[in-house]
Computed example of a mutant assay.
Amino acid sequence: MTGLLGRGALVNWGGVVAEQEDDYNMWHSREHMPERLAVPGFRRGRRGVAPEGTPAARKYFMMYEAVDAEVFISAPYLARLNDPTPWTRRILSAYIEPSRTVCRVVADKGDGVGGWLATLQFWASDVTGLRAFAASDWIDRVMALNGILGASALEGDRALGQQPTAEKTFRESRGDRDRTVDFALLVEGFDQAPTEAAAHGLAAEAEAATGLAPVVTLYRMQHVITNVDVAATA
């Protein structure tokens, strides 16, 4: 029972200047995700928004699932990155502290998409401990909790997805360079309370096992779309 639709994932955290948030949401749903899901190898895209009070740099979480991580350096995808639409240029120029990482899915279980998702971000010069934790039985314990629908572990690959593209130029135009993560754990659930509780319990367990304290952020899913949805409307 796998939760993600492939073994590659592109994860993004960030914000957008307040006066362009409505435009951002419409762009991401109406243009950006359908455009990406039309690229061969892309399987599912999603966007979540954090509760009020979350720092602007983590207000939005965007993720694309793909057949494998190499999809994110494929020729069709790079062609899109180097030919942004006018709408894309405008929105990317309004990004705040973008974080973008190509990841390999190292563990996952799940049953569909939850209405709430929590992310745990890790930074480490050596991910050996995180790999060992991801290979342990943590995911079974999380999946056994009431209200939880899925959990996954992603290892960031700094060798992929950092090419100087046209989109990257617009995304970094406010002076904030793209950040990356070394590892991420995701937890999905029915509602806010069980998802948040599971995430904080997992954070404590991961820190005890690895000595690394993650940044935990909660998101309400706003939009989920698959390549099948895009093909059906083409």
Rank of each mutant, 00 (worst) to 15 (best):
R44E: 02
W87Q: 03
T85I: 03
A107C: 05
G53C: 09
F122Q: 10
G112T: 09
I73D: 15
C103L: 10
V67F: 06
G48P: 07
S99V: 10
A94F: 00
L92I: 01
D68E: 14
A50V: 04
R47Q: 13
R47H: 04
G48C: 06
V106P: 03
G48N: 05
V113P: 06
Y64S: 08
Q121K: 05
L81K: 10
R80P: 00
M62D: 10
I96M: 03
E97T: 06
P84E: 10
G112L: 11
R89G: 00
A57V: 05
Y60S: 14
V49Y: 06
A94E: 07
A56P: 03
T85S: 15
N82W: 06
A56L: 08
G112Q: 11
T85M: 08
T88A: 15
A56V: 03
R44D: 02
A118P: 03
W116N: 07
E52C: 08
G110H: 12
R47T: 08
E52L: 15
V113N: 12
V105A: 14
R104V: 01
P98V: 05
S93R: 01
P98F: 06
T119A: 14
C103W: 07
E97N: 12
M62Y: 12
D111P: 00
R47K: 13
V105C: 14
A56N: 03
Y95I: 00
R90E: 05
I96G: 00
R46D: 00
V49G: 03
M63I: 08
S93H: 02
T101C: 12
Y60Q: 13
P84S: 05
A107W: 08
V67H: 14
T85L: 12
F122S: 03
I96Y: 06
R80T: 00
D108Y: 11
M63H: 08
E97S: 13
P76D: 08
G115Q: 14
S99N: 11
E97C: 07
P86C: 04
P51G: 05
V71A: 11
L81I: 01
F42A: 04
G48Q: 10
K109L: 12
R80H: 01
A56S: 09
T101M: 10
L81G: 02
A66H: 11
R80Q: 02
A107L: 09
L92W: 04
P86R: 07
F42W: 02
E97Q: 10
F61G: 09
E70H: 13
V106T: 07
C103V: 06
A66P: 05
R43M: 01
F72R: 14
G110S: 13
R104Q: 11
P51T: 02
G45W: 06
F122W: 05
G53V: 05
G110M: 12
E65M: 11
Y95A: 08
R80L: 05
L117Y: 01
P84R: 07
V106N: 10
I91P: 01
M62A: 15
A50M: 11
Y95T: 01
V113G: 08
Q121Y: 03
R89K: 13
K59H: 04
P51V: 02
A69W: 01
A107R: 15
A66K: 14
F72T: 09
R100E: 01
K109N: 04
K109P: 00
L117W: 02
V105N: 14
D83Y: 04
G114P: 00
A118S: 14
V49S: 10
A69Q: 14
I73T: 15
Q121C: 01
Y60E: 13
